[in-house]
């Protein structure tokens, strides 16, 4: 028995000595690094002013899932942006805010945000770091203010230490709050769908999926441009002859922008129902019905959609099969992006 003691102690000491390195290794593995998937353009968001660190990313994730940012502590970013729905809000036509109030637009999915020149359906936010100011202060979303959120974080028993660890010096301010959130939202990269593996030659498509891709490139890709599946313009896709929501025009002040909205990426589209800026369609079948036979003429209608996109039954099935290949399972199951209770 006694002879086992010494090796046991040595082993224990070795393990203890290695623990900090092991912990750091695990933390580093748990932190996404900004990267550019093969064939993608350079991102719009410049991480050089906000380098992603393990502590910064973990703080951003914690803030994203913490309802402390809302006025009454009832909703977090994660309340409406659910990972299993590619950070959209499954089954909710429009966003739901504090006190049970509804917003007017569908909660957008969150991924590849670092590549988006502007954010929101109307492009009203031109910088990733500044996006959270909008939902934090919108009365029908989190209903508070940036100043209130910062004040609550300063008084919190845990956050001041987490901010110090993330940014290297004491202090909680709005810039650090927004930069921590950007370390989380900016590293939500979805680039590992079956489509991606197909174009890299790593996985085959069925004949139907290949037909769907060809139809997609023929009819949809002018706006939903690969590899991001959007060219981030603002377009009227013929939903209403007289749009109730001014859309981009509220930002630009230009009458020709009335009823136009940002072209959303179609990555993970099978997960993000309901669809369109106001969530009016529950299924992709309904969306295809709209594009094939439901286009409403209006002065701002995108010229490409005049007359609709005629599709027969087989073509619709092929297109739907292709859209399914845009689902990124590893993204929606990536534990680094999931709510934790650390």
């Amino acid at each position: 028995m006694k002879r086992c003691l010494l090796p046991g102690v040595v082993l224990l000491l070795t393990l203890l000595a290695a623990a900090p390195w092991a912990y750091a290794y695990v933390r580093a593995r748990a932190t996404p690094r900004p990267y550019i998937p093969a064939g993608w353009p350079a991102p719009r968001y410049d991480f050089s002013g906000n380098p992603v660190s393990a502590d910064g990313f973990a703080l951003g994730r914690r803030l994203f899932y913490d309802s402390i940012l809302s006025r009454d502590g009832s909703v977090s970013c994660g309340s409406c942006h659910q990972q299993f729905a590619a950070f959209a809000h499954l089954d909710h036509r429009v966003s739901h805010g504090i006190g049970g109030v509804n917003g007017k637009r569908n909660t957008p999915a969150l991924f590849n945000l670092a590549w988006q020149p502007e954010l929101m359906w109307d492009g009203s936010v031109h910088h990733l770091e500044l996006q959270p100011v909008a939902p934090i202060s919108n009365p029908v979303e989190m209903g508070g203010s940036l100043a209130l959120a910062v004040d609550k974080l300063r008084r919190d028993p845990h956050y001041p230490a987490l901010f110090e660890r993330a940014f290297g010096s004491p202090g909680v301010d709005s810039q650090r709050l927004l930069r921590a959130l950007a370390q989380f939202t900016g590293t939500l990269v979805s680039a590992d769908s079956r489509y991606d593996r197909y174009v890299q030659g790593r996985e085959p498509f069925t004949a139907q999926e290949r037909q769907g891709l060809a139809l997609f490139r023929q009819h949809c890709a002018a706006c939903h441009t690969e590899p991001l599946f959007s060219e981030f313009s603002y377009r009227d896709d013929g939903l209403d002859a007289a749009p109730a929501d001014a859309g981009r025009a509220a930002v630009s002040g230009l009458p020709q922008d009335r009823g136009t909205f940002r072209v959303p990426s179609l990555r993970n589209v099978a997960l993000t129902a309901p669809y369109m800026h106001d969530g009016r369609y529950d299924s992709l079948e309904q969306v295809l019905d709209h594009y094939s036979s439901g286009i409403q003429a209006s002065p701002t209608l995108d010229p490409r959609l005049r007359g609709g996109i005629p599709l027969d039954a087989a073509q619709r099935q092929a297109l739907l099969a292709f859209l399914d290949t845009l689902t990124d399972d590893s993204f929606i199951h990536d534990r680094r992006f999931a709510e934790t209770h650390d």
Partner: peptide, 22 residues
Amino acid sequence: GAGAQTGSLDPARGMFWTWNTG
């Protein structure tokens, strides 16, 4: 257009539009 700022330019000072960022 330079992202989150501090001091006199801290958006928490209330001189910042959220519905049309700037």
